[in-house]
């Protein structure tokens, strides 16, 4: 049997809006992936520690509070420091278009905006997790 893709869905920062994170977690699970959801109010350090401990293939970051420019790159940098730079990191939330390029330059592979379907996210992960 093919190995299941393992994904960590995480809520960095103080934002409590986790409807999207939970819906995506469930959709990925229904698509046959193994999903761990961190719960809200995680620091980048906690997220990276969980990701390494659980040996995940990918991390999905959700933030609707506007703190994404600080928090998302911090997660990617910490992963690289810990030698886990190959983990595929994607993000979602209320993220202005003008921030997307900066986040991609920082190493976030893709940003999913309000209205994105879970199908798109699933297809993206399947395509990019090696």
């Amino acid at each position: 049997m093919e190995k299941k893709i393992k994904v960590l869905i995480a809520k960095p920062g103080l934002d409590g809006h986790d409807r999207g994170a939970k819906v995506v977690s469930r959709a990925l699970r229904d698509a046959g992936m193994e999903v761990i959801y961190t719960g809200i109010r995680q620091t980048p350090e906690q997220i990276v520690a969980t990701a390494i401990q659980e040996d995940v293939d990918s991390i999905g970051l959700s933030c609707l509070s506007g703190a994404h420019n600080k928090l998302f790159p911090k997660v990617v940098n910490l992963l690289r420091e810990k030698g886990a730079g190959d983990v595929l990191v994607f993000g979602g939330g209320i993220i202005p278009d003008e921030d997307i390029q900066g986040l991609k330059d920082a190493g976030i592979a893709e940003i999913f905006l309000p209205g994105a379907s879970t199908e798109t996210t699933i297809a993206f992960i399947k395509e990019h997790v090696k």
Partner: peptide
């Protein structure tokens, strides 16, 4: 430290 990036945002 926990306020980092969140000040004045929402």
């Amino acid at each position: 430290e926990l306020a980092d990036g969140e000040v004045g945002k929402v």
